[in-house]
Design a protein around this nucleic acid. Sequence first.
DNA 1: CCACACTCTGAATCTCCAA
DNA 2: GTTGGAGATTCAGAGTGTG
Lengths: 378, 378
Amino acid sequence: MDAERLLVETGLSGRKTAPRLATNRIIRGDCIEAMNALPAGSVDLIFADPPYNLQLGGDLHRPDGSQVDAVDDDWDKFSSFAAYDRFTRAWLKAAHRLLKPDGAIWTIGSYHNIFRVGAALQDEGYWLLNDIVWRKANPMPNFKGTRFTNAHETLIWAAKSENSRYCFNYHAMKAMNEDVQMRSDWLIPICTGNERLKDGGAKAHPTQKPEALLYRILVACTRPGDVVLDPFFGTGTTGAVAKLLGRRWIGIEREEKYARVAEQRIAGLLPLEGGAIEISEGKRAEPRIPFGSLVESGFVRPGTRLWGPGRRVGASVRADGSLDMAGRTGSIHQMGAAAQGLPSCNGWTFWHIEDDDGRLVPLDARRQAFRLTTAAGA
Amino acid sequence: MDAERLLVETGLSGRKTAPRLATNRIIRGDCIEAMNALPAGSVDLIFADPPYNLQLGGDLHRPDGSQVDAVDDDWDKFSSFAAYDRFTRAWLKAAHRLLKPDGAIWTIGSYHNIFRVGAALQDEGYWLLNDIVWRKANPMPNFKGTRFTNAHETLIWAAKSENSRYCFNYHAMKAMNEDVQMRSDWLIPICTGNERLKDGGAKAHPTQKPEALLYRILVACTRPGDVVLDPFFGTGTTGAVAKLLGRRWIGIEREEKYARVAEQRIAGLLPLEGGAIEISEGKRAEPRIPFGSLVESGFVRPGTRLWGPGRRVGASVRADGSLDMAGRTGSIHQMGAAAQGLPSCNGWTFWHIEDDDGRLVPLDARRQAFRLTTAAGA
DNA sequence: CCACACTCTGAATCTCCAA
DNA sequence: GTTGGAGATTCAGAGTGTG
């Protein structure tokens, strides 16, 4: 096994730093303490489903880990929101430290908490990429008829920083959506039926998320072998889908009963086999090939005539791979742009070449043929 | 007409105080100063479309080389999140003072600003009721393939306080949505075509909102005669729809060029007549493409006369998409059934509408046209 | 007059690598 | 850090023109 292969299989490919990290496990305990105990810059993607602060009670924790008591009439709104903000900023800061430079985070929430989470993300230095609307195909109605049916939840996708070269599998998303760009509104049913985990007859967790939601997120924003962390693991939907898709995962969960259910759930799963997790790649994933390589390899001979659409413009290939268009010279891209009066141009698709039957074929076809022959040799 | 009915139609129902207030006018100037000069507790509903603080980078070109006309106006530039927050909290505070005790506010924004606006609303004492997703039927694509198509904007609906008995015309919303509860995700086309105001050939305002959006909001959350204030009036969509629906309005606008366009626009409008703006008291029917969508989008105007086969029965379209047939009201299906003495009826095929030449065309043809423009409606 | 082709545009945080 | 060149990238709707 060569070094390149080893790097890929250990998930170190394409990442600047990758400290040793035990993955595919659940860490019991407070998520802020647990994250601070993990090595900085070690995680590719974080998915977080934090408490929604529905009535400012329940499972809300202060930054020091102590539990906030249930709704208390003595608390005014400001101090309650302030407590939620402190908690939010603390876990977002710990998450930020954990991410690799090109890492990213997804969070989910409702109108009760998502505005505070979104503002905190911006304040902590994350760079927002999209807000995504999960449109519930089967939401719970508003029984009293006092408001609109609350039929969606909001997700926020953010990179670690403005300069992060985050992972986005654009072509995979497009393929999943009938070959049109995936939009920011996703129609997905809520988690019901067999997918809904039971614990002694009752539902195991009150807010279990559908696997379809995590599936789309992980296909869109991770590569095989990436490390995915979920600091509010619950019953482990993130881990289940990560395992299915051949991603490594770490879950943090404070409640033993949830952790136990999650462990059983994930242990019983089998990952998709081999090629099943492959996704559509675009041209960006292909190795770059200078036009000059085709010339020096004889795929395109110097002096060959190239034509724009409808033969309205023509140019001649020179020995160094540049073009001569009526006396002006430059790259295939520069001359394509000049021919159209545009600021830029993809010369591979603009220029055409005559095949043996005199038909015009895009230059890009020659590049593809060149790739196939060189790949076979390598 | 009984007292209750009179109160509803004059907009005095359920309102504690109603100071004298000059309405149906545009105030030129800074919205915070202008709001502070108006009497406290005098406004029923505020609709606010504040600057989004987009933070755009360089030029953006479409794949065909054309340049996107960016929102680069000075009014959208802020030096920092902190500066934007100060601005936001200042106008929200002034708006809060203006509202009647049972008043409410709607704001709109994108992921660039909406989280800060939402958090500020909570901090200023407003009580969030819903977040609403405006799903754009025809959004601008992501030309570089770097993110999900940004296909929606977010609105927040909030009452002045937790104790406000805010106005929500539940049955009108249900009637507008084929007698199922209106959800929190709304599919509405962006503002284009004849509706898009021009000023010397160019678009008059870079971010003009569709009337269908304001139509739904005002039908849902106001009564005839209510005072609606828009502190970022722009080209006056709020005022135009308010006038159409028989609501009083106040617009505040800093830029003279926008105010002038808005003034002309609203002056040229006629309000809907009498019964057309009455909203449904509620009843029953069945789902699919909501007839109300055709009404709010302008495919069928309120007040339009519908005819049964051979013109043996007639009915008038009301503002919420229900019909008035000789005093009896209900959905297109209910009224079709009633007209024939049958238990049920497909209103789409029973009712006909006059085309420009006076010929009767089935309502279903309009639905088909609507489907084509909104891409399936679902 | 109809069918079809072509053009224009919209609140957008819109590339990546080597030198 | 910056700069410059290679080269990848779009959907729906409305308006206009042509045969």
